[in-house]
Each structure stands twice: as C-alpha cells, then as structure tokens.
Computed example of a mutant assay.
Amino acid sequence: MLMAVSQPSLVWGFDFGDGATVRLDGPNGVAVPGGGGDDLLDPKAGHLRWLHVNLADQSSCRWIAGLSSLPEAVRDLILSPDGHQRALVEGGYVACVLHDFEVDFARGETSRVGALQVAIGPGMMITARHHPLHAADVVKRRIDAGTRPADAAGALDLLVTSIAAVAATSTRTIAAKVQASEDALLADGWEPDQRDLVALRRRTVQLHRQLSGIRGVLLRLEEDEDLPPSLLSAVERLGQRVAALDSDVVSAQSDLRLLREELDLQAQQRTNRNLYVLSILSALLLPATLVTGFFGMNTAGMPFQHSPFGTLYGGLVAAASAGAVYLWLRRKGFLGGK
C-alpha cells in the first residue's frame, strides 16, 4: 500500500495539452490530485506528462520500483547503477540511458559526465538522474520560454536536441580556442599553455564518447522492430543530427592534434638548432683543447718552453687549429657554405 501512494522527489514536471503548459512541481510537491504511484503517469487523454525526478532521493527509487504500469525491464534500467549508454524497447515503452555533463550550482558546468535515465510511453515521459545535469536545465528553460512538445516524440526531440545544444556550444568554444591559438602561433610565435591543450583534448574526448554513445543508442532504437512508429521519424532525424555534431567534434580533435604537432615540431626544431650550435662549438674548441692539453704536459723538450713568447705561440697554434677545423666544416657544408 505504501508503494501505491508513494511520490517521487520531483525536480520539475509538466503537463502539455490543449495549447497550454501546466507545471506539476512547486513548493507543495506534485500538484496532481490524489497523487501517487501510477496515478502520476496517467494524464488526461491527448496530454503529455513529463516528470524529471531525482534518483539521489530514495523516495524516487521506491516510486519507480512500484510503478506497475512500466515493464520490469524499463524499471530495472532506470534504477540500474550501471551508467553506460544503452537502450531497450519493451511492451510499447522505450527506455535508454544518455550521457550529459553535470552542473555545479557554484561553478556551473563541470567536466564530470553523468547518466540521464529516460523512459517513454504513451502520453508520458520520465527522466531521472542522480546529479544535476546541464541538458535538463536547458530543457526547462526552453519549456519556460514557450516550447510545448505535443507528444512523446516531441519530448524526445526536445531532450536530445538540448543535449546536442550543450555539446555544440562546447564544440564551438573548443574550435574557437584552437583557431585563436593557431593564429597566435603562426603570426606571433606565441605558444599556448600545454595544460590548456590537455584540458581541451580531454573535453573533446568526452564529447566524442558522449555523442558516439547517443548515436549508438538512437541507431539501436531505429533498428528495433518493436519501436513505436510514432517515434521512428524522430529517432532517425536525431540520429542524423547527432552524427553531424559528432563529425564537428572529430574535426575539432583533428585541429587540436595538428596544433599539438606544430608545437612539437617547433620545439624539435629549436632543440635541433641548439644541438647544432653546441656541436659546432664543440668541433671548433676540440683542437684548441687538444693543443692546450698537449702543452700542459709536464715533459721535457716542449716547444716554445724557453721562448719569451711561448704562450703567444701556443695560443696562435690553438687558434690556427680551430680555424683549420672551421674551414674544413665550411668546405664540407656543415656551416651552410659551399
């Protein structure tokens, strides 16, 4: 009996129908007369009810576990701690797990990836999460601004396009930063911080994994013969959009890879130039070192030993040996000569 009257921890909820949008969440809880259990999934005929619940609250888990109108496989997917992206179709209901970036109320969007569980059925849609997600905020803002999905296909379209919008914004930001770094590098020789490039690379990897996973989920649904016909066109359209966006992410990854390769090439060229200078200096100083070492031997009969200009003569011999090596290197082309 407790299951029959339980209510979820509702983040937000809406009823769409008759050209109007009715909010179901508020300071007094869920504004559904009599409300609990499966009654929350029973909107008026021709209406669409969308509930976004917080799985971090055990009341939401108990409510979902007690929904007899949902197939068991759908309930298990929503409540599963496994967060990898996947989808299933069971008894006319569609369930899937999609990835989105978590948000922190103090710092905004984070780099942490969270799971969004989705269940779609006749006249209803449930989205559930453990941590606040960016796309859910985008969905709510769009609904508050006047967007009204007419059916489950429209709700799925709104959800996936909101996730795609967040990913597209991140992709454009990354592409702009990479292009600005390329322009500065080629024009002024300015080099970006390697830590910034590592952070950008990590972000592109996360975006690619997110979008490729969503694309796989939509493809899985598109190929399922049990998928409700009303959702097929929306799934096909969304799959194409996500695929195009994923291509943009891959392009940004390629640009970032080229930038890193250019930085590595310039660093290698600087190292080679430094090694070249050191090699030339070593070659020039080696004969002089040999001469000074020879004259430094404590043996009898050393040249210039009794000459008042012995030091000068020894220095001239060292300089002449270095000059001879210089001319030889230049003749061989090591110094850029012919």
Rank of each mutant, 00 (worst) to 15 (best):
T161P: 12
T161V: 10
T161D: 15
S162M: 04
S162I: 01
S162G: 07
I163Y: 02
I163P: 02
I163F: 04
A164R: 06
A165Y: 04
A165H: 11
V166N: 08
V166Q: 07
V166E: 09
A167H: 09
A167L: 08
A167S: 13
A167Y: 09
A167F: 04
A167D: 11
A168F: 05
A168E: 08
T169F: 11
T169W: 12
S170D: 14
S170P: 01
S170N: 07
S170G: 01
T171P: 04
T171Y: 07
R172G: 03
T173Y: 02
T173A: 09
T173R: 07
T173G: 03
T173C: 00
I174T: 11
I174C: 10
I174H: 05
I174Y: 07
A175E: 12
A175F: 09
A175K: 08
A175H: 11
A176S: 13
A176G: 06
K177N: 06
V178M: 05
V178I: 10
Q179T: 14
Q179P: 05
Q179F: 14
A180D: 15
S181I: 01
E182I: 09
E182A: 03
E182Q: 13
E182D: 09
D183K: 10
D183Q: 13
D183N: 11
A184D: 06
A184V: 05
L185V: 02
L185C: 00
L186R: 08
L186C: 02
L186G: 03
A187F: 01
A187Y: 01
A187E: 14
D188S: 11
G189T: 06
G189Y: 07
W190P: 00
W190L: 10
E191V: 13
E191L: 08
E191H: 10
P192Q: 07
P192V: 03
P192Y: 07
D193V: 01
D193A: 09
D193K: 11
R195H: 13
R195D: 15
R195Q: 15
R195G: 15
D196S: 13
L197S: 05
L197P: 05
L197G: 02
L197T: 01
L197M: 10
V198P: 05
V198D: 12
V198S: 11
A199D: 14
A199N: 13
R201V: 00
R201M: 07
